[in-house]
Design a protein around this nucleic acid. Sequence first.
DNA 1: GGTCGCGGGAGAACAGTGTTCACCGCTGGC
DNA 2: GCCAGCGGTGAACACTGTTCTCCCGCGACC
Lengths: 279, 279
Amino acid sequence: MTDAAADPDTPPVPPPSPWNRARPARVSGAPARPALTRGRIVDAAFTVLDREGYEGLTMRRVAAVLGVTVSALYAHVSSKDELVELMYTRLFDGFTMPAPDPERWQEQVREYAHFGRRRLTEHRDMARISMAHAPFTAELLPHVEGVLAIFRAAGLPDRIAAEAGDLISTYIDGFVLEESLWQDRMAAHGGDGSAGGGSGDGRGMAEQMRDYLASLPAEDFPHLHALAGLMVTDSSDDRFDIGLEIILRGLASYLPDERREGAENGKDGKGENDKKDKS
Amino acid sequence: MTDAAADPDTPPVPPPSPWNRARPARVSGAPARPALTRGRIVDAAFTVLDREGYEGLTMRRVAAVLGVTVSALYAHVSSKDELVELMYTRLFDGFTMPAPDPERWQEQVREYAHFGRRRLTEHRDMARISMAHAPFTAELLPHVEGVLAIFRAAGLPDRIAAEAGDLISTYIDGFVLEESLWQDRMAAHGGDGSAGGGSGDGRGMAEQMRDYLASLPAEDFPHLHALAGLMVTDSSDDRFDIGLEIILRGLASYLPDERREGAENGKDGKGENDKKDKS
DNA sequence: GGTCGCGGGAGAACAGTGTTCACCGCTGGC
DNA sequence: GCCAGCGGTGAACACTGTTCTCCCGCGACC
């Protein structure tokens, strides 16, 4: 996660001059814990989130991680909702939108999406938090602006560009959320039925799910039965890229003809025949 | 919401013949409430949801609506999670997937999406519930199968068809969820600042949001500033259709050429000049 | 140097949550 | 008429977010 040094509460804050040092550094053997700040509280909240999940994210547990009582938190954070919102804001920390390059707009969107997904998967249940919040706080508006800039520079009509940002964000959040829901469900009932590390990398879970879908009666569910192997894969990376590509192609279809050159076969040239369209 | 008569717990249930009436109809002035069933509990949960929102959806409140104690609920429902899952299942009640028609696949998907959005908007915070659940319960698999059937019949490659269903569902849920989040946020701070009914139809809220975006400094946020009028509109219907169309175009780009005829201009004209209706 | 101010944290309390448990009252069947 | 048992009751438990009062320990001030 991001460094606590980026915390807005402690701006540049020049190094404390040796004279006039504010606090004499706790003489005796006390734990000498650093001062409580919003940044440290958010850090603690993330360790609780990773360990207990979103349902287990509790003010009391956050306080316990810091070795502090609950009420101490409320001196720095007005409510749990605000704390969760601060966690949400961290999602975009350290990512600066690149300057729009009309030649590479699809690549730029892919990079943005991949960064978003990585950030979302870094912390358990983070997608649930992200989904419930809209990026309309002051710190997050620049990112929305950056995405908009890429789409408009690429030449998309305004009506489409205005919608494209939401579409991409929703896709990223929704994809990761669903991903994590599967893991939860698998871990819940029948989690460690097989041998080996229970909460592991999800390989066993994918197999279980695939087997379940494949076990559906082929006469009732022919397509589910047939596509079982494609709907749940060992790595979700391919599935994520496919969905992203569908959206990018849809967006590209709104480009003026002269800009569409090389657009539709942006990443993998296949899709057996979709070039030379409108020739 | 669906009629209680469609409840699986109380099938056709012929009118009680005057003789042999099961229960003597509660002699004295007692309310003579009907028997508690899962269906009636879910109905009550929906009225609580509509009145109090998802945060206020409480077992005690559900019990109060039924004039019953909390513990009585647990005789029919094993947990609150199960109750919410039952509510989620109602989403698809009364919708049967049409038989796939390759000539009309885009229209069929649009109908499915519009139905889904309508259902989601019918109950407050329903999108939040839908988003947190995956349609992999036994009752919901037929719908997934139906969507898959449409995509495969249209001629989409299997890899794409497998992803398309998720993509559409995620879009619907995400769109409605974001829609409702805006309403909540607007209602929360500054809700009834203006005159007239506070919780109303959202016209005033859209204006507020648009004004906020338009008020951003144009030098820092040129695109957000310029597109304010497009990003938040009085009616979200157009925005929903635009996003849906982007996805459909992306999917269509994977069709073999001979099937793409008439695909890209499925609803409104293609490319850069697809406005010019707006008469 | 002594005193004051005061801010940050402690601890208890409140209202409300999901869930469970022992207890009945009433009904239908014998 | 009796009895079993279902279905609902009310109290309890272990939590939750949030708030209130109190107090310690430090820096600043006279």
